[in-house]
Amino acid sequence: MDYFIELLFSGLTRGSIYALIALGYTMVYGIIGLINFAHGEIYMIGAFTSFIVATVLSIYGFPLLAIVVIAGVAAAIWSSAYGYTIEKIAYKPLRHAPRLSPLISAIGMSIFLQNYVLLAQTSDFLPFPELIPDFDFMEPVAHIVGSSDLVILITTTIVMLILTFVIKFTRIGKAMRATAQDRTMAMLVGINVNNIISATFIIGSALAAIGGLLIASHIGQINFYIGFIAGIKAFTAAVLGGIGSIPGAVLGSLILGLTESFATGYVSSDYEDVFAFSLLVLILIFKPSGLLGKAETQKV
């Protein structure tokens, strides 16, 4: 039973990290219909930024909590700047081009950023400082649920609640939903669509950066390539849940995380990806629009 709970929690932890990244995919897809393949790289840059900031701050002897908060905020801001710039450089000029063009541009951007970090930083794995301490009160259950699992779960829950609130109730959230539904009409009611698209990239990038910080601290090492596999997994999760749907992205991520965790625990860690992607194939066969996605009707 303990083993089951342990797998359950590790699956939820994985799933919530996927969700932080998958939200960026799904929000961008919802608003401009583009799969932003450079999004995984944004996550990787978030991890690197928090690595640099955390290392510098720990040299100066800052307390751990201050390091986590400052590194998180710095990573979110820095990654957002990347997300914003990528959209302006690589996608905005192609807004009225055929759908394939921005997709190729996104893949190009992804390769560029990977190699840029490879050259600017290093190709080695860097040891990431352990930012989340082992709490004393977690001691009795530490063999089942680690402290960092707990922190990741709580942080992602809070972040998602804030995101839901912003999208549902605030002025900018309404404008985002309106833009996603009908871009021309959104312009006609006076929404500056370019600003809203930028805001979407900024929010998505900030979420990915927070994910980058959390997972890097959890696993304990980073390199320039981590964005690729995390990006593919999160993209899978977003498609699983129904791309374009925000609750879908969260649900898909949790299912994917749990599947991987149980497959690793009960079968073999070699088969983790086999199970994850078989699940994707099955869902796409039986429900092509994803779990919570709506079948797309052609606009006349």
């Binding site: 309106a178 009409m185 006076g190």
Partner: peptide, 24 residues
């Protein structure tokens, strides 16, 4: 051309967008 998946109230509130300014 309404925003059909939004509520009636939200549709009108969207109209206020260009006269207000709160952002992220």
């Amino acid at each position: 051309r309404l925003f059909s998946k939004m509520t009636v109230l939200e549709n009108v509130m969207i109209g206020r967008h260009c006269r207000t300014k709160a952002f992220i």
